[in-house]
């Protein structure tokens, strides 16, 4: 155990260092190359007000264009991975991800609705109304799924997953109908469904940061209880864990966190599924470590993917597509390896 948690701590430090280095590195990349030294100076100047003033164009590119997007990638990736870890632990299902309860379908429905209303002549500023409607859609879905599942007093994982599947199926039919109505505007809907961080501003960061950090801390408080959940609901209850209350609290916290992310970035799949698996493979299943390391790992992965699409690839590929394209094959390799070990599906 001590060996394992020592290794986890080292992994955490390495991930944090990699993440900080990636933030700086990513800020140097793009249409205009900025030396790493200048990036550090701009950040230092902004944070402490000391140091020499640089060329205003460089400052603008780094602080107003790149940094918000970079921070958004880190925060969204981190939150999705943390929520994936927690969903897998409370639903006792390694296939769960932040979208298992239909949060993504709800958000997509909200966003599509705004776009279609636009087609029918309702004029709302899309930049503001899409996130707001997406968030409202997520909350509505969460409410529907939880009220559907709560007929089961034990709030079992089967009831929750089934409720999520039912609601998501209805919503995806509704989204299909909206796409049909959207006619020529269907491209906007599709682009939104595939996720993008290109429109992120500092206002988004101001909302995302407290949500992400508060949510992360809240989830970490329940690490030991989540571990105990892995031995089954009945066994957990005899250890004094109130499984129903634990499920309620964490489902609501994580769904809110996910809804905020989705409203900013659209639907970005795979991060929430793959990061917990990779880390479990690396450091073991202890949620006390897994949650915080997922945040770092998820942030790192999404920043990598976003930098790739923003600065490396000739055209901007939707980030949700990219995460699945990078993550998918990687996931297959891990899965095959674990099948060979006899630990697949754990």
């Amino acid at each position: 155990m001590t060996g394992r948690s020592g290794f986890s701590a080292v992994t955490g430090v390495v991930l944090l260092a990699l993440l900080l280095a990636s933030v700086v590195l990513s800020a140097t990349m793009g249409y205009m190359k900025v030396p790493a030294n200048d990036v550090l100076q701009v950040i230092l100047h902004r944070l402490t007000g000391t140091g020499s003033e640089l060329d205003p164009v460089t400052v603008a590119v780094v602080t107003d264009v790149r940094l918000p997007r970079i921070l958004a990638a880190v925060l969204v990736g981190g939150v999705l991975a943390v929520c994936g870890t927690v969903f897998q632990a409370i639903l006792l299902n390694p296939l769960a991800d932040p979208y298992t309860l239909g949060i993504s379908s709800g958000a997509a429905f909200g966003a599509s609705l705004v776009i279609v209303l636009q087609v029918f002549g309702l004029t709302l500023p899309l930049g503001l109304s899409i996130p707001v409607f997406a968030f409202a859609g997520s909350l509505g879905t969460l409410f529907a799924v939880l009220s559907l599942a709560s007929g089961d007093r034990r709030l079992s994982s089967t009831s929750l997953i089934l409720s999520g599947v039912i609601v998501a199926a209805i919503l995806s039919a509704a989204i299909g109908f909206l796409k049909f109505l959207a006619d020529e505007q269907v491209g906007i809907i599709i682009f939104w469904l595939m996720g993008s961080l290109s429109g992120v501003s500092w206002q988004n960061i101001v909302v995302l940061t407290p949500v992400a950090l508060a949510g992360l801390v809240a989830c970490m408080l329940f690490g030991r209880e989540l571990n105990i959940m892995a031995t089954g609901e009945r066994a957990a209850a005899t250890l004094g864990v109130n499984t129903v209350r634990l499920r309620w609290i964490l489902l609501v916290i994580c769904s809110l966190m996910t809804a905020v992310c989705v409203s900013v970035s659209g639907i970005i799949g795979f991060v929430g599924l793959i990061v917990p698996h990779l880390l479990r493979h690396l450091i073991g299943p202890d949620n006390r470590w897994l949650i915080v390391l997922s945040f770092l790992g998820g942030g790192l992965l999404l920043l990598f993917a976003d930098t790739l699409t923003r600065a490396v690839l000739p055209a901007e590929v939707p980030i949700g597509v990219l995460t699945a394209l990078i993550g998918g094959p990687f996931f297959c390799v891990i899965f095959k390896k674990r099948q060979a070990d006899g630990t697949a599906g754990l």
């Binding site: 155990m1 394992r4 632990a89 006792l92 390694p94 571990n227 892995a230 031995t231 089954g232 066994a235 479990r280 073991g284 299943p285 202890d286 630990t343 754990l346």
Partner: peptide, 12 residues
């Protein structure tokens, strides 16, 4: 006694 996610004996 079913334990998911590969927890070690000591952890359990």
């Amino acid at each position: 006694f079913v334990v998911r996610f590969g927890f070690s004996v000591r952890e359990v």
